[in-house]
C-alpha cells in the first residue's frame, strides 16, 4: 500500500471515524457491543456489508436513481446477512443471544453503508470506494471491539466469556447509556491524541505539509491520487442535504473541527 493510501486509511479510520466523528452506525454499536463476542460479530458483518455494498455501488449503481439505490443497499445487506444468520441457526456452532438475533439483521439498514455509498462510492472509482469502505470498516470495527471489551469487563466481569473474578460490575455498561459514555471518552481520547501529536514538533515529518495546530484536516487523499476526492460534497440536493458531509454536520453541532480559542473552564 502506498504512503498516500496509508494516510488515507488512517484518516478514514481515525480522524473521520464513522462512529465517533460522523455519528453513523450508532445503533449497531450501542445495541450490539455488550460483549466481545458480539462486537466481533458486528465488526465482521458490518465490514462485509460496507465493503461489498460500496464496491457494488461504485461499480454498478452510479446510473441508478437515488431512491432505487437506497433500497438496493438494504437488499445487498440482507443478501450478506441472511446466509450468515441461517448458517448459525442451522449449525448452532456459535451461540448468539436473542438480542443479537434482532441486532444482526439491522446491519442491513445501517447508516454507515448508506452514508459512505451515497457521499463517496457512487461518485468515485471502485478502487477509491473500496479503500474508503475499508478505512470506515476498520474504524468502525475498532470502535466495536474496544467497546465490546470494555463493556463486557466492566458490565459483566468477563472477557470473551472468561470470568475475571471482579469484586463488582456495573450493569449500566451493558446498556445504551453506558456505551454512549464510552464513545464520548473514546472520541475525546482520539482528539486529545491528535492535538498532542500536532503540538509535538518531533512527530510531524516534513512531507506532512503545513502545520495546522488547532485543526484536524478532513481531506482524504492528495493530489498524487487523481481518483480520490474530498468527502465534502460541493453540490447539495435533497438527500445530500440530509446525508450531509462530515464537516457540515459536525459544524452544525458545535465548533468541531478545531476551535483555536477552546474553553478553559471557569
Amino acid at each position: 500500500m502506498s504512503e498516500n493510501s496509508r494516510g488515507y486509511m488512517l484518516r478514514g479510520a481515525l480522524l473521520n471515524n464513522p462512529v465517533l466523528f460522523q455519528c453513523v452506525g450508532l445503533c449497531s454499536i450501542i445495541a450490539g457491543t455488550a460483549t466481545l463476542k458480539d462486537s466481533l460479530f458486528i465488526a465482521v458483518l458490518l465490514a462485509a456489508d460496507l465493503i461489498i455494498t460500496c464496491v457494488i455501488a461504485s461499480a454498478l449503481l452510479k446510473k441508478i436513481p437515488r431512491y432505487v439505490r437506497i433500497a438496493i443497499y438494504l437488499m445487498i445487506g440482507i443478501a450478506v446477512i441472511y446466509p450468515v444468520l441461517h448458517y448459525i441457526e442451522e449449525k448452532t456452532l456459535i451461540e448468539i443471544t436473542l438480542g443479537m438475533r434482532i441486532i444482526i439483521p439491522l446491519i442491513a439498514v445501517n447508516s454507515v453503508t448508506a452514508v459512505h455509498c451515497e457521499t463517496f462510492a457512487v461518485k468515485n472509482s471502485v478502487k477509491s470506494a473500496f479503500l474508503d469502505a475499508l478505512a470506515a470498516a476498520v474504524g468502525t470495527g475498532a470502535v466495536a471491539v474496544i467497546c465490546g471489551i470494555i463493556r463486557e469487563v466492566i458490565g459483566k466481569g468477563t472477557v470473551g466469556g472468561y470470568e475475571l473474578n471482579m469484586k463488582f460490575t456495573m450493569s449500566t455498561m451493558s446498556m445504551p447509556f453506558g456505551c454512549l459514555v464510552l464513545l464520548g471518552f473514546l472520541a475525546a481520547f482520539i482528539k486529545a491524541g491528535v492535538r498532542f501529536s500536532q503540538r509535538n514538533p518531533g512527530s510531524r515529518s516534513e512531507e506532512d505539509g503545513p502545520d495546522r495546530p488547532e485543526e484536524i484536516s478532513l481531506d482524504i487523499g492528495s493530489d498524487d491520487e487523481p481518483e480520490a476526492v474530498e468527502m465534502i460534497i460541493a453540490d447539495y440536493d435533497d438527500i445530500d442535504n440530509i446525508l450531509s458531509s462530515t464537516d457540515e454536520f459536525l459544524k452544525s453541532l458545535t465548533g468541531y473541527p478545531g476551535d483555536v480559542n477552546g474553553g478553559d473552564g471557569e
Binding site: 455519528c23 472520541a187 482528539k191 473541527p257
Partner: peptide, 8 residues
C-alpha cells in the same frame, strides 16, 4: 474544553 467539543 477543546477535547470534549463536538461529538464527545
Amino acid at each position: 474544553p477543546p477535547i470534549f467539543k463536538g461529538t464527545p
